[in-house]
Nucleic acid binder design. Structure first.
Length: 769
DNA sequence: GACGCACCGCTTTTT
DNA sequence: GCGGTGCGTC
């Protein structure tokens, strides 16, 4: 116990040892949040205040859940199995598997990922002859998911015009179709669980009484449904229920665009009458200048809960700021700086290059590739999302639940077996007529199409029969062969990677079976009741027998079902080149939660960061500022910021002003590597040396660009596209275009918040910057 | 049934 | 500027 608590600072200690009451922990970046969360659990168990089975810990990502489990197992001598630690979706999946009857789901219900969901909506639109110009599938999906995230069923959505009424109708059709097929989307996992527990009182009370301590990570990222779910679990407003321990940081709320509601923090504080609010402000990550920059920037936001990070680490290096002439040159500069960092002994994996949007990575990647520097881009296609892996999964899905139409359509003719669009159309008509799944409609088909289709279902049933008594890895192996997938890719010219990915599925299955506590040889298809019902805890409450949805998964589902939900809920890593020491490229969003010795924040330009579309949304710029705050606080020792005068975006050259965020950073913490414009110096005549004039090692493409621009300057009274200027009324701007010549010369200038203006150069008084 | 061409859209992302 | 998608042709 002494061990557990030692080395905690006073605030951390206070949070860990709070009495069993609701609590809100405001945990700043790098303040030891995960440590507090895990130590709290360990302390509660070690002091005998709760048994492992009384703990429910919820995270957003599998990574965070795994991290908690790992840390806990080093702190506690006991088995962590009895605890419920997982993502919202993972926990809901487990609950729904256990109580599938009460939730009105088939035992082998399957989970649609976003790809599957979208293709299902497209099918639905087609089947109902709906113009997908008027109802873009993505928007229909957004509408459905949004309402589910608000806890609303189609019947509860209020529609005010014909368009909305149609959307509501589609929502209902979509849900009906899911129910017929026995599939649920991500939002449905949560909503269905929520409805199950609200409706079913004995079940609700059982879980409310069981979980004495509910702990939530990244609380600022919860959406309304998740918050309602937590309220229900914690028995808010009922005589039962445990304490809710919420950890979050309102300044790091960057997911409003997908429904996260920071307001949940304030709501929690008042609705749960939180007496215990603790702020963790001591930062163990970054040097002083970096924190000063973060603190001063975020102070520009309103409606904060209020927090200021501090450190004992000293000021450290100032933040280095660089103005590049172009995106190419920005990339070139990053490489030069990275090289010298590495020369000073930095590890490549301790250098992160962050950007606002993925499109920015291309130029940087290209430069890194040319320079022969190893790098790793985060956020590509993940393992279980690859086409060939999804195909294999579809075969497995059909064996477990043949009514999954998405899976059926994906592989009915892949590899090709002579079942064309015409046959599929007939089959869909038959399915509509008999109100059944495509698979079930196959017997109604006649002729050549009928026999090809029958051969396909026979193939599925054949493999199922053949593998009846086999364990999951064998089932996977046989499926890969019998489906013809392996053969198909082996014959393909560039199919080697795909074959490798497919073969990897066998090892993935082996690993899964052993990690999830299924017996090594447990038959993949066998139902849970036969395989492991002995482990399930049966509870009798109010005369109702309840099988508690306890770990391990083997108690509630077959190895195959479990593996399939694993594939949907945990998409896997994106690349296997883990061991390599490489520069880390990622968006600011994906950098959240990570830290590096050296961080580059790139593309700090108006319109890009903050992104232009954010200024149209209510509170959009504040969210961008929080995003910038997240970016800054990733750095331990060195932080670099860069922006460009010219940038290629969507096939067009754009001229942006430097980001407004520079004006919100403390002067004394910045070191400008290129001459900088003094704000109070706009109208002085002294000419400024810009990065343009002192480019150290400009790539050739850049030289050409510069030359081209200088050519034009002769005809334009010395003005140049991309040049920074100041105007008495509009302030600082960038010349975006020049037209005409001599006395008729006009300039189009981007004045940032004043917008785009076209000025007659013989009249307008412009200052060169 | 495979390939080629035209068209679209384009912020951020986990489950 | 690029990648995904959907349609038309051989």
């Amino acid at each position: 116990m002494q061990n557990l608590l030692h080395n905690l600072n006073p605030e951390q200690l206070a949070a860990v040892t709070l009495p069993p009451q609701n609590a809100l922990i405001l945990a700043g970046a790098g303040s030891g949040k995960t440590r507090v969360l895990t130590t709290r659990i360990a302390w509660l168990i070690q002091t005998g205040q709760v048994s492992p089975a009384g703990v429910l810990a919820v995270t957003f990502t599998n990574k965070a859940a795994k991290e908690m489990l790992t840390r806990l197992s080093t702190m506690l001598p006991i088995n962590t199995r009895g605890m419920w630690i997982g993502t919202f979706h993972g926990l809901c999946n487990r609950l729904l598997r256990t109580h599938y009857k009460d939730a009105a789901l088939p035992q082998t219900f399957q989970i649609l990922d976003s790809q599957d969901q979208l293709s299902m909506i497209k099918r639905l639109l087609k089947a109902n002859n709906i113009d997908d110009e008027k109802f873009p599938p993505k928007q229909v999906m957004y509408f459905i998911n949004n309402n589910k995230d608000q806890g609303l069923r189609a019947s509860q959505v209020e529609a005010y015009d014909a368009l909305e009424r149609k959307l509501v109708e589609l929502y209902q059709l979509y849900d009906d179709q899911c129910q017929r097929e026995g599939v649920v989307d991500f939002a449905e996992l949560l909503l269905r669980t929520y409805e199950l527990l609200s409706r079913n009182e004995p079940l609700r009370q059982h879980y409310q009484q069981r979980f004495r301590h509910i702990l939530v990570d990244e609380f600022q990222d919860t959406n309304n449904l998740q918050y309602a779910w937590l309220k229900l679990m914690a028995g808010h407003g009922s005589p039962y229920g445990g304490a809710l321990f919420a950890v979050g940081d309102d300044d790091q709320s960057i997911y409003a665009f997908r429904g996260a509601n920071v307001g949940n923090m304030q709501a929690f504080e008042s609705e749960f009458r939180v007496q215990n609010l603790i702020k963790l402000e001591q930062n163990y990550r970054s040097h002083g200048h970096i924190l000063d920059a973060a603190n001063m920037l975020i102070a520009n936001n309103s409606r904060r809960l209020g927090k200021n990070l501090r450190t004992d680490a000293g000021h450290g290096e100032p933040v280095r700021v660089y103005e590049a002439s172009s995106d190419l040159q920005e990339a070139q500069w990053i490489i030069e700086e990275a090289k010298s960092l590495i020369a000073e002994g930095a590890l490549r994996r301790e250098i992160a290059i962050l950007y606002r949007s993925n499109a920015q990575s291309r130029v940087i990647e290209h430069a890194l590739f040319s320079a022969g520097m190893p790098y790793h881009v985060y956020g590509g296609l993940r393992y279980f999302q690859r086409a060939e892996v999804k195909h294999a999964i579809a075969y497995l899905q059909l064996m477990d639940n043949p009514h999954n139409d998405s899976a059926f359509l994906r592989v009915v003719n892949f590899p090709a077996r002579g079942i064309g669009a015409r046959s599929i159309e007939q089959l869909q008509n038959a399915a509509a007529t008999y109100n059944c799944s495509l698979y079930a409609a196959v017997p109604y088909m006649v002729g050549k199409a009928g026999s090809s289709l029958a051969a396909f279902t026979k193939l599925i049933e054949g493999v199922r029969f053949e593998t009846q008594q086999l364990a999951l890895p064998e089932l996977v192996k046989i499926t890969l062969d019998s489906s013809g997938l392996l053969q198909h890719y082996a014959n393909e010219k560039e199919g080697a990677d795909r074959v490798e990915n497919l073969e990897q599925m066998v090892s993935a299955a082996t690993q899964f079976v052993s990690e999830e506590g299924f017996g090594q040889g447990a038959p993949a298809h066998l139902g849970p009741q036969a395989s492991a019902a002995a482990g399930a805890q049966v509870v009798v409450a109010d005369g109702v027998e309840i099988i508690d949805a306890d770990a391990p998964l083997a108690t509630v589902m077959s190895p195959l079902s479990a593996f399939l939900s694993h594939a949907s809920l945990e998409a896997g890593d994106n690349q296997a080149q883990e061991g390599q020491d490489a520069l880390q490229l990622m968006t600011v969003h994906s950098a959240k939660g990570l830290e590096f010795d050296n961080v580059f924040i790139t593309g700090l330009e108006e319109g890009l960061f903050p992104h232009e579309s954010s200024s149209k949304e209510e509170g959009g710029v504040e969210e961008e500022r929080r995003l910038m705050y997240v970016a800054i606080t990733r750095a331990r020792k060195r932080l670099y910021m860069a922006f460009c005068q010219t940038r290629m975006l969507h096939g067009q050259t754009r001229y942006n002003m430097k980001s407004r965020f520079f004006d919100e950073l403390p002067e004394e913490s910045l070191k400008w590597l290129t001459a900088r414009v003094q704000q109070n110096n706009w109208f002085s005549t002294g000419s400024r040396k810009s990065a343009w004039d002192e480019m150290p090692s400009v790539p050739s493409a850049d030289n050409r660009l510069a030359a081209r621009m200088n050519e034009r300057s002769g005809a334009s009274g010395g003005w140049r596209i991309g040049e920074s200027v100041a105007h008495a009324k509009f302030g600082e701007g960038v010349i975006v275009n020049l037209e005409g010549s001599g006395a008729n010369c006009r300039a189009q200038i981007n004045f940032g918040s004043f917008g785009m203006k076209v000025l007659d150069l013989s009249v307008a008084k412009l200052e060169r910057l």
